[in-house]
């Protein structure tokens, strides 16, 4: 009968199906013992450093995605960008890319689409820095783009500051926080991740209670008992 499929075609169909299944199983790691998320929770799982693990989770398992595991902007370029975008230490950085005028469009928060979690931008070839204060929604109130390098009139002002490590009071002790925490309370937003400046990347991002060991410096004076 015509409905019967010839053995050769059946063989091809079966082998295609098998190949398809094998490919799918490989992609979804069925041959491995646990799904990747569980493995990462397992304290004994490999020695994959946190960033790599995060990137893997982010990438899914497709290695031909255009999103690189490491930022394509070299670390010294990231550092020079850092300084270039800020007038002084703690200044709100200028926006180094083209922006829409509309901040929020029916609840859709444009800036935070990339800056909430530090997504990768293909045209910037960089990971977006994570906003340490995403609860402030009126971004363009403080962050403005740089539309020209030209000045109106010359100025004496120089963007001259250096990021320095907080002082270590004893050899090996945890450095103090050398900057104000106003609008910068989320440590990991700047001290960890692919957009972070190399110099300040932290060696132990998994310890989330940062202020247990690192404290601010509200004064440089020492304690003196009050005179009676």
């Amino acid at each position: 009968m015509k409905n019967k499929i010839s053995p050769q075609i059946l063989l091809i169909i079966i082998s295609l199906m098998v190949t398809f299944i094998v490919v799918q199983l490989n992609i979804f790691n069925f041959f491995e013992s646990k799904p990747i998320e569980e493995k990462l929770d397992d304290p004994h799982y490999g020695h994959i450093p946190i960033q790599k693990a995060e990137a893997q989770m982010y990438l899914g398992l497709h290695d031909n995605s255009p999103i690189p595991k490491k930022s394509k902007t070299k670390s010294n370029k990231r550092a020079s960008n850092f300084y270039k975008n800020r007038a002084y230490a703690g200044a709100p950085p200028t926006i180094p890319h083209k922006v829409d005028e509309v901040i929020s469009d029916g609840g859709f928060e444009n800036c935070l689409q990339c800056h909430r979690n530090g997504s990768y931008s293909i045209d910037m070839k960089a990971y977006a820095p994570i906003a340490p204060h995403p609860d402030f929604k009126n971004c363009r109130q403080c962050h403005v783009p740089k539309l020209t390098e030209k000045l109106f009139k010359p100025t004496k002002w120089k963007n001259k500051f250096k990021v320095v490590s907080g002082r270590r009071h004893l050899p090996g002790s945890p450095p103090v926080i050398p900057h104000s925490l106003q609008l910068r309370e989320n440590c990991l937003s700047c001290h960890f991740g692919e957009a972070a400046m190399q110099k300040i990347k932290v060696t132990h991002p998994e310890r989330t209670n940062c202020r247990q060991c690192h404290v601010q410096t509200k004064t440089t004076e020492n304690f003196k008992r009050a005179k009676k």
Partner: peptide
């Protein structure tokens, strides 16, 4: 309070 790092954090 006689530990500089601590006093300077919360004076």
């Amino acid at each position: 309070r006689r530990i500089p790092a601590l006093h300077q954090a919360v004076p």
